[in-house]
Design a protein around this nucleic acid. Structure first.
Lengths: 234, 234
DNA sequence: GTTGCCAGGATTGTCAACAATTATGTCGAA
DNA sequence: TTCGACATAATTGTTGACAATCCTGGCAAC
């Protein structure tokens, strides 16, 4: 739909391509273990192979993609243990950030959060997974940025990216999206009334569902020797 | 001195070059604000420009280097605020890791730590800054790995890398090196006797000196409008 | 004396072709 | 039929040249 890169400043195009691929992974267009062939992507995204190459290197650094020398890149499949480990660190960091947000929060931040939250809610109600994903990203960035430590925010975002591959399960699920929508609203409210305890609790709760859903999905679908009775279904 | 990359597996060479540059930054060979010209580095390190390019992209993502489109890369100068912010997160994460190390620690880890600690001590006593730097990196990686969460370790290492540029002040200082040496020994001891509280306290203390030294050095040397009486000296 | 402009040089960004490596498929022998 | 060697195809990795961009310094105009 949106032609993001028109005449970007070189390195911007790389970022743009990386972001597009990231979105496709999150939205389930690209599934775990799927091969990412440079030339193919280059043609599809209307950029040169060189750019795709750099973008894939970026995604590898982030942890969304795995690159084997001379064999190419595949979207990385996180095993449940890794997911648990990542989420446990996320919990600590997001809790920490929430605790450090100065209360009462600045009105401008609060207003921005309200706006983004409304956009997210609208996207969820319209079942627009892509818009919901984007609004969700912006919401959390805006929220955690209020803690005042950009490096902490960067870490939180990095960890979120790492499990983006895991989000393809929840990113399209109406149930999860509405839950997230309501939790966002609750967060804004807690922030508005200056209830830190509630805010922190909400942030912690917020992580659980997507983690559990992914672990359940992986254990049901992607493990090889598990679930001996059920053969491949779909 | 050491010809690290002889016939590495492509992507390994990029890592190798990035590591070399990182070392040169830490050891003060490359100073903040110094330009990193691709072709020059390529010739000096006997690799193609392409490899240097990717290595610089790596270092940019890590935060050691700043890259401006069409203008090239410079080693990043962290302002004191950033250093404080990074160290505050480091403190949380390293404390967390130390708290999660299962005690008593496995004998094999303890033995490995002892070996590395001895190497570090030897390097410090021999005033070999490079060897000390390497041993120091390995020591902390070995220590924190024992916490069992690789992603937490990765974050800790990433933050450590970010302030590597800041370490050029302390990495060559005999005073700081001997202090670090003794603290490492104390950590191993605390680990050996299973004294968690002491271990955590040591980890926390361990961070302070280099942070303070860097902030002091930056405020004395690199700020522009400060120190109005003293003109450029060297 | 200051400002604006243009040429020259240095450096990064782009590209397409080529080399190297790995996977795939076929054929023959046991 | 199964196994292994070999040829072939698909894909990544590398290279050098070229284009675009940005800084530098000098010169002229105000």
């Amino acid at each position: 739909m949106t032609v993001t890169a028109l005449k970007a400043q070189t390195t911007e195009r790389v970022r743009s391509v990386a972001a597009m691929l990231e979105e496709e992974i999150v939205l389930g267009w690209l599934l775990p273990r799927e091969r990412l062939v440079e030339e193919e992507l280059a043609e599809r995204l209307s950029v040169k192979r060189h750019v795709v190459r750099e973008a894939l290197a970026d995604l590898e650094r982030v942890g969304l993609v795995e690159r084997i020398p001379n064999r190419g890149a595949v979207v990385k499949l996180l095993d449940p243990l890794e997911v648990r480990q990542i989420y446990s660190v996320r919990e600590v960091l997001e809790t920490l950030a929430a605790e450090q947000i100065p209360l009462p929060v600045s009105p401008v931040v609060l207003e921005r959060l309200r706006v983004v939250q409304k956009q997210h809610a609208a996207a969820v109600d319209a079942a627009d997974a892509r818009a919901a994903f984007r609004a969700n990203m912006i919401f959390h960035e805006t929220l955690f940025r209020a803690c005042g430590n950009p490096h902490l925010v960067e870490l939180i975002q990095g960890l979120a990216q790492k499990v983006h591959g895991a989000r393809s399960i929840t990113a399209a699920s109406a149930e999860h999206l509405t839950l997230a929508r309501d939790e966002h609203a609750a967060m804004v409210e807690a922030l508005a009334v200056g209830d830190r305890e509630r805010l922190v609790a909400l942030c912690r709760q917020h992580l659980g569902p997507s983690r559990d859903a992914y672990i359940a999905a992986v254990e049901a679908r992607f493990t090889r020797q598990a679930t001996p009775g059920s053969a491949i279904k779909a």
